Amino acid sequence: MTIAPDTARREPAQYKAMREALESLDDTAPGKFEITREGIVHDMMSPGRPHELTAALISRRMEKVMPDDLLAHTGTPDVEDAPEGVMRHPDVVVVALADMEGEGPFDPRTLLAVIEVVSRSNPDNDWVGKMRDYPLLGIPVYAVFDPRTGTGAVMSDIHRTPGGPRYATRRDFLYGEDVTIAHWTISTDGLPRYEDAGE
């Protein structure tokens, strides 16, 4: 669910106020909050086991084929670009070990790729909102895995459009196929799917 919609570039004071409001809600409200170009997104359901297992398997498979000085990291911190007024929480980020050092959120310009597992409760956040925000943040590769349908896509090649930066290249895949994310190819065999009863 998106709240506080705001498509214009917001003032730094507005973004700071939104950030502080989310920090105050962090331990008291269920789900996950992110700040997007359209406002605050609240995914009211915490990720379930199929979602988390998918992220963990992708992370493990990526790390098996990447150099030792890179990580396919799950968990915190967020990815933030305060001047753009965007704070996102990816499921997996591909980042150099050296860029894990320090405090605070990740600088999106240090990330090699971002991977999202589509949420059953808010799929548009991954397929629409993040498709818009990640090229804006300069993230070169964005991969989406959708356990609802057993499909996914890898986006790359950021280019300028009248509506802002967008990915020019999209490669769709089906679960069971190998998929290349940035420079690394992994199997999608055995990734869990959501059941009708819920995530």
Rank of each mutant, 00 (worst) to 15 (best):
P90D: 09
A56Q: 06
V117K: 03
M66G: 10
G75V: 00
I139D: 00
D69S: 10
K130W: 01
P67N: 12
R60K: 14
E23K: 14
P77N: 09
P108T: 06
G31F: 08
D126M: 05
Y134K: 04
F145L: 15
E84S: 09
K64G: 10
I139R: 00
I115L: 13
R148P: 02
P30F: 06
D157Q: 14
A82Q: 09
V41S: 12
D91H: 04
T54Q: 11
E84C: 05
P140L: 03
E103F: 11
V141C: 10
P165E: 05
Y167I: 03
H89W: 06
T36L: 11
A153Q: 14
V92I: 13
D146I: 02
G163K: 10
G163Q: 06
I139N: 00
P50N: 15
R61P: 13
V79A: 08
R132Q: 12
D99T: 00
E84G: 04
Y142L: 07
M44Q: 11
G85C: 07
P108W: 05
M62V: 09
V94F: 01
L136D: 01
H73C: 01
D43P: 00
D27T: 11
A98I: 01
A82W: 03
A96Q: 06
A29H: 07
P147L: 10
S59H: 07
F106L: 05
A168F: 09
A72T: 03
G75Y: 01
G31T: 06
V41N: 09
R60N: 13
